[in-house]
Design a protein around this nucleic acid. Structure first.
Length: 264
DNA sequence: GACGGTGTTGAGTC
DNA sequence: TGACTCAACACCGT
């Protein structure tokens, strides 16, 4: 665990860490071992804001985790390498544990090797909204009509780039986008304008299906029959047709697809 | 020891 | 408008 790049299902898993362990607990102390992960707040300010506050039901939007309390809200983003762990205080601290939130019954640990994103603090609902302002609807919640409308509005762009654009729908990363496109039989470089409503609807259906399986697992599973898991094998074969997979760089990311199942 | 690859996000350029 | 590069960062394999 903690290996995969965090996408919506992973962050949902971290939300469950909060929901199962932190809700109802009172913050005793916040320790920051690397202030490079804090944005807009100092280590002392974070401790001051959260100390004696009680965690309430957490939420998630896209790849953002919202750790609500009976005071301010801590917003966490996991970048490429972040994770969230619940530990007993005497458990050894990992070298990449950057923020430790000690409560009256265990410790919440924000771990991140590369500090590409990090933590923000919001004192009001308005401040929370401001952080999330540029995001589209959550990928696990958006209905088919809105999904189709939002993709269709970006008709000239490659569908892979649109799916991973957090302003269109929030939560999909590189692995999920490739998995969804592969399942839907859509070539990743296709302009969304070239996709009719039926194809866009198919993308929505596959997105929901992939998320329905990945969210309970807390990750994009690399089980047989999924594209994920074959993608790191240079001689990987398509789980559907057995043919060789293709790989290229699209929108700045490694993109894997099947030339047979996903024709141009 | 240097370098390229890894992929999220935002800034900047064409 | 979209495609592109770079920079942030740390680690790994070559």
């Amino acid at each position: 665990m903690g290996r995969a790049v965090p996408e919506l299902p992973d962050v949902e898993g971290y939300r469950r860490v909060l929901a199962e362990h932190a809700v109802g607990r009172r913050v005793r102390q916040v320790r920051v071992t690397d202030s490079g992960v804090l944005h807009g707040v100092s280590p002392a300010g974070l401790d001051r804001a959260l100390r004696d506050r009680r965690f309430t039901e957490p939420a998630r939007h896209g790849k953002w985790l919202l750790a609500h309390t009976d005071g301010p809200t801590l917003l966490l983003h996991f970048g490429m390498t972040g994770s969230l762990h619940w530990a007993e205080e005497d458990q050894p601290v990992h070298r990449h544990d950057r923020v430790l939130v000690r409560t009256d019954g265990g410790e919440l640990r924000y771990r991140d090797m590369r500090k590409l994103q990090g933590l923000r603090l919001a004192h009001t609902d308005d401040e929370v909204d401001r952080v999330l302002a540029e995001l589209g609807p959550d990928a696990a919640a958006v209905d088919v009509d809105e999904f189709v409308d939002r993709l269709a509005a970006r008709r000239r762009a490659a569908v892979k780039a649109v799916l991973t654009d957090q302003a269109v729908v929030a939560g999909l990363g590189n692995l999920l986008a490739d998995e969804i496109l592969w399942r839907a039989g859509v070539h990743p470089a296709t302009g969304t304008g070239a996709l009719d409503r039926a194809r866009l609807g198919r993308l929505h259906r596959e997105m929901r299906a992939v998320l329905a399986r990945a969210v309970p697992a807390g990750r994009v599973p690399d089980r047989p029959g999924w594209l994920t898991g074959r993608r790191d094998d240079p001689t990987g074969a398509c789980p559907r047709c057995g043919g060789p997979l293709a790989r290229t760089r699209l929108a700045g990311r490694t993109t894997v697809w099947c030339p047979v199942c996903q024709p141009e």
